[in-house]
Design a protein around this nucleic acid. Sequence first.
DNA 1: TGCACGATTCTCT
DNA 2: GAGAATCGTGCAA
Length: 200
Amino acid sequence: MILPRNFYEREPLAVAKALLGKVVVHETSEGTTAGRIVETEAYMGPEDKASHAYGGLRTCRTEPQFGAKGHAYVYLIYGMYYCFNVSVGEVPGKPEAVLMRALEPVEGMGLMVRRRPAAKGNVVKLANGPSKLCMAMDISKKQNGADVCTPPFYIRDAQPVPEEGIDAATRIGVDYADEWKHKPWRFYKRNCPNVSFRVK
DNA sequence: TGCACGATTCTCT
DNA sequence: GAGAATCGTGCAA
């Protein structure tokens, strides 16, 4: 079953943890790909200096973060890669989001391998990074603003990762965020080989 | 109108 | 372990 919208209408840290174990599904004309979420990061709105919406910055780019919860926020990074977030939070209109950092492929492996030549057929490397999973799942600007509660691009319910199986750590690539970079707001499934390799 | 830079990845050494 | 690739966005001028 597809996760209902109210799944996302909670405090971001809770959603980030609850998303571990769930499955992202993308149905395309090429075929269907799906991957279990094994790593996420939470971005806590206007107060969070690491967030693109820091200070309440609202532009064309950050717009999806301000809209209805359970929508995709996809953006281009370093001019060549995409990152995929979902808007979440208890407060309507507050720009909070959860970044998907790594997936464990569960369906459409052959298709993912084709979309990810650099992984050289290594299943672990297909989606063990925020931009890698976008390539493997064919997520791009077209998915920006998409509702992840409805096909063809959605997140399916699945066995959650128990609290004791979740590790928390600092977020990646946000050294510019002063005190916010130390927040343990990255969550991942313990001992999972599919989490993004850059540990610190 | 111009400019610096990033929620990254890959390749080569 | 280092460096390149590459461009939309935000902010200064």
